[in-house]
C-alpha cells in the first residue's frame, strides 16, 4: 500500500512539473525514478519511451503506466497513471473555470519564457545522459544521426523511425552474431 501511494505521489510530482509534453518529462523521470527511487534503470526507461512512441495514447502517460506495472503490476500501473494526470486535471479545471485569460497576463508569459529555457537545458542534459548510456558504437552513431535527421527535416511520424530502428537492430544483431560465431 505504501509503495502504491509513493507511486501516485512521485508521478503526481512528475506530472505537475512537466512543461511541454512527453519528452520534457524525461529529466523529471531520470531524477525521480532512476536516481532517487531507483525504481528502474536508465536503459529500462529508454525502452519504455521507445515502446510508448508506437503504442497509442499520450507518451508521458504510457511511460508512467510502464513503470507502475513493473513495480506493482496492474494496481501499480493504475496508481502511477492516476498520479501523472491528477495535477493536469486540477490545474486545467481551475484555469477553465476561473482564469480563462491567464495567458494574457505579462507575468505568466515572462515566467513561461523562463521555464522554456529551463526545459531546453533539462532536455539537453537528458540527451547527454542517454548518449552516454545508449550510443556506444558506430552502429549507435548511425542510428542516432538517422533518427535526428528524420525528425528535424521531415514531417514523418516518429513511429516510422521506431519501426525502422527495430528492423535495423534485428538485422545488425544477426550480422554481428554471425561474425562473432565465425571468430570462435
Amino acid at each position: 500500500m505504501k509503495v502504491l501511494f509513493q507511486l501516485f505521489l512521485t508521478f503526481a510530482r512528475i506530472g505537475g512539473f512537466t512543461f511541454g509534453g512527453g519528452y520534457a518529462m524525461l529529466p523529471m523521470i531520470q531524477s525521480e525514478i532512476v536516481e532517487r527511487k531507483k525504481w528502474a534503470t536508465e536503459e529500462e526507461i529508454m525502452n519504455y519511451y521507445a515502446v510508448s512512441q508506437c503504442t497509442p495514447g499520450v507518451i508521458a502517460v504510457n511511460t508512467a503506466t510502464f513503470v507502475g506495472y513493473k513495480l506493482r503490476g496492474g494496481v501499480g500501473a493504475v496508481a502511477a497513471t492516476v498520479g501523472v494526470v491528477t495535477p493536469s486535471v486540477i490545474i486545467i479545471l481551475i484555469i477553465a473555470a476561473f482564469i480563462r485569460n491567464f495567458l494574457e497576463y505579462d507575468a505568466v508569459r515572462y515566467a513561461l519564457n523562463g521555464i522554456n529555457v529551463a526545459v531546453a537545458v533539462l532536455v539537453l542534459n537528458a540527451v547527454i545522459n542517454l548518449w552516454k548510456k545508449g550510443v556506444k558504437n558506430i552502429f549507435g552513431y548511425i542510428m542516432f544521426a538517422i533518427a535526428l535527421a528524420f525528425s528535424i527535416f521531415t514531417d514523418w511520424s516518429p513511429i516510422f523511425v521506431v519501426i525502422g530502428a527495430i528492423l535495423f537492430g534485428i538485422v545488425y544483431g544477426v550480422y554481428s552474431g554471425r561474425k562473432a560465431g565465425k571468430g570462435k
Binding site: F144, A147, A165, L167
Partner: peptide
C-alpha cells in the same frame, strides 16, 4: 539495441 540510439536521436530533435 537498435531502438535506444534512435530514441536518443528523437529526443535530441525535440531538444
Amino acid at each position: 539495441k537498435g531502438l535506444r540510439p534512435a530514441v536518443c536521436g528523437l529526443i535530441a530533435a525535440a531538444c
